[in-house]
Amino acid sequence: MDMEAFLKEFSQSRYDTVTVGTDGAEVYLRKAPGSLSQIADPIRPSSEPAPSALDSVDERKLIKATRVGLFYPRVKVGDTLEENFIIGQIRAMNIMHEIKAGKAGVVQKILISSGDAVEYGDLLLELEGQA
């Protein structure tokens, strides 16, 4: 199979990654997030933990934890955030890691109390639409 045909096959497949080649000469390919297969893939579970009661909330208005640790919010309801705004810190291995908002909006709810544990994917803040 030539390269173009192979890439086409891969992009339409249900796999997100592939390693081709033999010992010593391998190429690792990974699809860009949000590519077609992630929506159509029947076996890939959702990459986000179930948001339970917040199912109806627009994903774009939620800020989630990308680290495990203890969360200390530094914002209050009503604050206007920009993407680079530090919304708080996550403490792990005795180090405080600053957490950026990653999206803009007005803080509507703070879902974690100061000092509570969060895991990867936990909801931290809900924003009000300024999108």
């Binding site: 680290r67 495990v68 640790g69 291995m93």
Partner: peptide
């Protein structure tokens, strides 16, 4: 980091 932090929070 996340694995050690998991041990810490639990």
């Amino acid at each position: 980091q996340n694995i050690i932090a998991s041990a810490e929070i639990t």
